[in-house]
């Protein structure tokens, strides 16, 4: 068998052209899928944003209570009322501030705020996709 004939023959077989409209159907299906995925993400991210907003409110309340209880507020107040004392003992005051800082509550405030901002931004981006593709799907 001369295999050299085979490639020529098989490669010369006519290509079955894609039916008319298939290209558009594919692109339409992709747009529809894109919209549905964006909708699911928008819903999930909106829920995350709401939960993180509640979390932020709770964390802010907790942080303010801890700030009051820890004495951090007292040291901060000192910086405005007795600047001479602060200037002369800035190292000790600084250390006291750092020690009394309610790190965990403040971290919770920061994290919940960041999550809220990120999820809101992402939800809005997905809503734009939904709006852009709503006429197609």
């Amino acid at each position: 068998m001369n295999e050299q004939h085979v490639p020529g023959r098989i490669s010369q077989l006519p290509t079955h052209p894609a039916p008319r409209g298939l290209r558009e159907r594919i692109l339409y299906a992709v747009a529809g899928l894109k919209r549905r995925l964006a909708l699911r993400r928008a819903i999930a991210l909106t829920m995350i944003a709401l939960i993180s907003l509640l979390g932020f409110a709770e964390a802010a309340l907790y942080a303010s209570q801890e700030l009051y209880l820890s004495g951090f507020g007292d040291f901060m107040q000192l910086m405005f009322t007795d600047t001479d004392v602060v200037a002369s003992s800035w190292r000790e005051i600084g250390l006291s501030l750092a020690e009394s800082l309610p790190a965990l509550p403040l971290a919770l405030v920061c994290v919940s705020l960041l999550v809220f901002l990120w999820s809101t931004a992402r939800a809005l981006a997905n809503m734009r996709i939904i709006r852009n593709y709503s006429s197609l799907a």
């Binding site: 290509t15 079955h16 052209p17 894609a18 039916p19 298939l22 290209r23 594919i26 692109l27």
Partner: peptide, 9 residues
């Protein structure tokens, strides 16, 4: 899609 549709089909 335009580039590969014919071959894939």
């Amino acid at each position: 899609v335009d580039r590969h549709l014919s071959s894939v089909y």
